[in-house]
């Protein structure tokens, strides 16, 4: 479960996140959407303890990220929007390193690396240096890093970027499977069709504020006159446009 209470963060005069409240139940996939600069990545960085909030509290699996950082991160996997990796390591070595950071025993780490590299279709490249990988391959490897310690919470910032159609489909299947197994997934994305397909609930962030939250039907209900047929994209655009009108 992910709990966010009254979260606020500013950068000088710019408001990054403003009074964000969210509760994401265990076993669900939450789609966090918004325009560029809405505050999605800031929220994620606050969730991972990479930024310190001006106000509010975040609990991951019941652990407060500010006070129980290690316990919170031990059960959380994270994929940043720009996942830089060590160019001169091989995938095997990188996964062993990350597994070690999470306290996995060597034998377990080796087993997990083998499983994940196969799952991410990187088994054939396990001995190659990461510097030779394509963007999509690096993205898949970064996802493997996020999963190596079998986290119960996954925080993913734009995980679809750079993936080929097969990779994107595999990721959708994987995320659904993880959610079915009880994992909580927090997903920030601009791929609204993908989000519509895999997410149970959505949050729309605009200028640091959560302007809509709920399942697809509840978002559709906010779209005047378009009714049940509206896609997530339509609902998102109209909700954001309406918000702009209010300003």
């Amino acid at each position: 479960m992910i709990e966010i209470e009254s979260l606020g963060k500013s950068f000088g005069r710019n408001v990054g996140v403003d009074g964000l409240d969210l509760t994401i139940p265990r076993g669900s996939v939450f789609g966090f959407i918004g325009r560029n600069g809405a505050g999605k990545t800031t929220t994620i960085r606050l969730m991972m303890g990479l930024l310190v909030p001006d106000q509010g509290r975040i609990r991951l699996g019941g652990y407060d990220i500010a006070r129980q950082r290690e316990q919170a991160l031990a059960i959380t996997g994270y994929l940043p929007d720009q996942p830089y990796l060590y160019d001169k390591l091989t995938p095997d070595e990188l996964l062993a390193f990350v597994a070690g950071l999470h306290g996995l025993r060597r034998r377990h780490a080796v087993q997990r690396a083998a499983v994940l590299l196969t799952e991410m279709a990187l088994a054939a490249q396990r001995g190659d240096l990461i510097e030779t990988f394509s963007h999509g391959m690096k993205q898949r490897l970064a996802l493997a890093c996020a999963l190596v310690h079998e986290p119960s919470i996954l925080v993913l910032d734009e995980p679809m970027v750079g993936l080929d159609p097969q990779g994107a489909r595999d990721l959708r299947t994987l995320l659904r499977r993880l959610a079915a197994g009880g994992s909580t997934i927090f997903l920030s994305t601009h791929s609204l069709a993908v989000a519509e397909e895999i997410c149970d609930r959505f949050g729309i962030l605009d200028q640091g504020r959560l302007i809509a939250e709920g399942d697809l039907d509840s978002l559709r209900a906010r779209v005047a006159g378009r009714g049940a047929g509206a896609s997530l994209e339509t609902a998102f655009l109209e909700i954001v446009a309406a918000r702009e009108g209010e300003w």
């Binding site: 991160l73 996942p83 390193f97 990350v98 950071l101 999470h102 890093c145």
Partner: peptide, 13 residues
Amino acid sequence: ARTFWLVRSSPIM
């Protein structure tokens, strides 16, 4: 610096 996200997102002190 650019790969420190791996360290910072892990429960290592």
